[in-house]
Design a protein around this nucleic acid. Structure first.
Lengths: 249, 249
DNA sequence: ACAAAAGTGTTTTGGGTACACCCATGT
DNA sequence: ACATGGGTGTACCCAAAACACTTTTGT
């Protein structure tokens, strides 16, 4: 059990608890995940390896504070949606590839670290590029490479949970501007579920949602019939929320 | 920051991570939760206080192992369903009532403990009473008293999640024997959701589930028309699983 | 014979799905 | 005038919900 106090702030840290963030970015009809690189020595060579952004929980934080701190450090974005989705706790989760453990060992206060997985959703186009740290990049979710530790598993579970939640909670609106067109909304579902929907059926469905309000505003400067903008009314959404006996199971 | 190594096994424990279990018990058309008492001194008197069963994570365990260990220690039951549902991490979660903290302090290796909430489902009638430890009791979920720490919050979230999951996953079958009648199944939903369903509509619905198989067997010794027994086929269930574009939201 | 739960069918209403054309705008 | 995406309606099928009576057994 290593207990290397290498940093002056180490005593502020809970040694065995971290948060890892799966930051989903949507742009141009495709879904990506934010990863960052680390320089990992393997057989006397320095390799670039990718991992999810993460950090330890500090003594004065709850895990949401930690997730928000990671988000700010990695993307410069504040106030964006985060959601805890699963704890990953295998005793050997840092040991699967020997080089990962060699890299991480000097950074640990305890060799046993349990991590809380969070996911969050951002619209890539609303992030100024200089906000991202230079070692970060977006990886398309259908082309995720080998990540360090158990981060492929964390990513897979996050994507499953994101898709599940998108069908049951108003998550789309985290990716949409305040005023959006119905086509913008449809394209997000199509990108994340990798499918297409019939426009007429889709619009009939969302037009029945009482919390989607048409505005007076329509698009300008587009070389086709301009679309109407809609807004999402969270209050109406919350007060209409109901569960039916679905057991779609 | 306390670091009191009071027990010979303390070095086997992760000081800041625990698991708390919300064990739901179903019986006689009602839903209960298992709590255990502790003797807590308040103003020189010893009071009986109730809490959820929980324990620290050991170094050689993942959190599911911990949950299973808690279940065995508290109910003697092995192999029952457990599911992690949320992490509770407020820095002051052990401090809300001063007497709770006084009681817990000598038992802690670190004053900061994050807990992973699990819920599980058992059929009370299938538990032999001597399996429960003597300090445990079942509390009806509609009459849950003040619990220690943040355990009321943990319980509330567990009940919300249980209800949500029951509508989307085949959890009922954790409470049913291998062979069950459709009325037994209906009564579980009615107890947990505190409502009633029309028998004909309910049966039409479940009769369409391809993973519910009628058997040749019928009840005996009941003083009314005997009911047919059904079985749940998990394989058919898994292969039929699908998500529709519901966005019930 | 009675009590007690099992089991069954019809009607109405609304949602899911499949499918093709006209509209408003910029170039 | 043409290219581009916006916007609309109909028909069929199936699911949800409301509602009442007959059947089988034990006592």
């Amino acid at each position: 059990m290593a207990a290397n106090f290498t940093d002056k702030d180490d005593f502020l840290i809970l040694p065995s608890i971290s948060v890892d963030c799966v930051i989903f970015g949507y742009s141009e009809n495709s879904l990506s995940v934010l990863v960052r690189n680390e320089f990992v020595p393997i057989n006397n060579k320095i390799n670039i390896e990718w991992k999810l952004p993460g950090n330890h929980v500090r003594r004065d934080e709850n895990i949401y504070d930690t997730a928000a701190r990671i988000l700010i450090e990695q993307t410069g974005l504040e106030g964006i949606f985060v959601k805890q989705f699963q704890v990953f706790s295998n005793p050997d989760r840092l040991y699967k590839r020997p080089q990962d453990f060699e890299w991480v060992k000097p950074r640990l206060l305890d060799e046993r670290v349990i991590t809380v997985g969070f996911y969050s959703l951002v619209n890539i186009d609303s992030i100024k590029n200089e906000q991202l740290i230079e070692v970060a990049k977006w990886m398309n979710v259908y082309e995720v490479e080998d990540l360090m530790f158990d981060h492929n598993e964390i990513f897979d579970e996050a994507l499953k949970k994101l898709r599940y939640d998108l069908l049951h909670e108003p998550l789309v609106f985290e990716l949409l501007p305040d005023k959006f067109t119905l086509t913008q909304m449809q394209k997000i579902y199509e990108a994340i579920f990798n499918t297409t929907y019939d426009k007429r059926n889709y619009r009939r469905k969302v037009n029945k949602m009482p919390y989607l309000n048409p505005t007076e505003e329509i698009q300008t400067g587009v070389s086709h019939k301009p679309a109407r903008f809609f807004t999402f009314d969270r209050e109406i959404y919350e007060s209409n929320r109901t569960e039916r006996f679905d057991f779609r199971v």
